[in-house]
């Protein structure tokens, strides 16, 4: 049996005057899934996230969140938390006061320990008593995530949560989101950082000019997609180059790199597999093989450029 859906959107449209922000968008997000939302600027990501948070009402289509249809009235559905366009924090309050005020607003029986726990999860325990006015963008993002955690959400909606994060902050955020998903919370996040999405998401949806151009597992995206560029470092670059030139489905990108030790080839995955087998049979050690750009990024560029073409 399929997992219950946290989000089920069908034919969602949203217009701002003459501008069509969302045009018949379908979206399924299963419970406990981390779902990435990518697209170029103006693709409609923030608008879609806003609909999920109850900040706007769709002009048309059906939207079900956590199993219940969303009505026309503005309001964030129960069990949904998150932020768009950056977390809303009050600079005159400390990190702990921001969370305490929010907890009091919800009237939830959030104990001090829960606030401390949320701060610890996002790695802000040391600055809990500092005013948010002095926080960097990354710290603000983490505090915004901590605020969302306080409400014990069943659906977490985050717009560009990785913005401004340093490696330590990124580790904290990734850890929190992974734990939430493991516990059954669905997460929908938008990002322009493909490495983050690939590390976190089991499924992605690519939006372009308000339309869905791909939705599904990352593996499917890579498999159904076109040729990718791969960096290939071997023990014998010259021999590897000759072998690659003789392998069907492999195209050598002559201008791909300035490093003479590295060969850049363009291929589908089966052709690349064939090349690796032939290199090994020829006694050439494969020291490194990696896509020049991630499959997600390549797919993103290909799909969105294709969509943008008249």
């Amino acid at each position: 049996m399929d997992a219950p859906l946290a989000i089920r959107a069908r034919g969602i449209t949203k217009c701002f005057g003459d501008v069509v922000a969302l045009d018949g968008v379908d979206l399924d997000v299963a419970a406990g899934q981390i779902h990435g939302l990518v697209g170029p600027n103006g693709a409609g990501k923030t608008t879609l996230l806003g609909l999920l948070l109850g900040l706007a009402v769709a002009d048309g289509g059906n939207l079900e969140i956590l199993g219940t249809p969303v009505a026309r009235a503005l309001a964030a559905p129960d069990g949904v938390a998150g932020f768009v366009d950056g977390p809303g924090l009050y600079p005159s309050l400390t990190a702990r006061q921001n969370l305490a005020a929010l907890a009091a607003l919800h009237g939830s029986d959030v104990a001090t320990t829960a606030i401390d726990d949320a701060l610890e999860q996002v790695g802000l325990t040391d600055v809990a008593g500092d005013r948010a006015s002095g926080f960097s963008l990354g710290m603000r993002q983490r505090l915004g995530l901590a605020a969302a955690l306080l409400t014990r959400p069943r659906l977490l909606v985050l717009d560009e949560p990785a913005n401004g994060l340093d490696p330590a902050g990124k580790r904290h955020v990734h850890g929190v989101l992974t734990r939430l998903a493991t516990d059954g919370t669905s997460v929908v996040l938008s990002s322009h950082r493909m490495d983050d999405l690939e590390a976190l998401c089991s499924e992605v949806t690519i939006l372009a000019t308000g339309r869905v151009v791909f939705t599904g597992p990352l593996a499917k995206l890579a498999a159904e997609n076109r040729e990718l560029d791969y960096r290939l470092r071997t023990s014998d670059p010259q021999a590897a180059r000759r072998l690659a030139a003789d392998t069907a489905g492999i195209h050598i990108d002559v201008a791909g790199t300035r490093d003479a030790e590295v060969l850049v080839v363009r291929a589908l995955v089966p052709a690349l597999d064939d090349l690796v087998v032939r290199l090994v049979h020829a006694g050439i050690a494969v020291r490194e093989i990696a896509p020049v750009v991630s499959p997600l990024e390549a797919a993103f560029l290909a799909l969105t450029e294709q969509e943008a073409r008249p």
Partner: peptide, 21 residues
């Protein structure tokens, strides 16, 4: 429009009382 937003039943949205706000 292919579909109309369902308005018959709203998502349960316990709003924050004015006193807390």
């Amino acid at each position: 429009m292919t579909a109309i937003l369902a308005a018959d039943r709203a998502v349960g949205t316990p709003r924050v009382p004015v006193a807390r706000g």
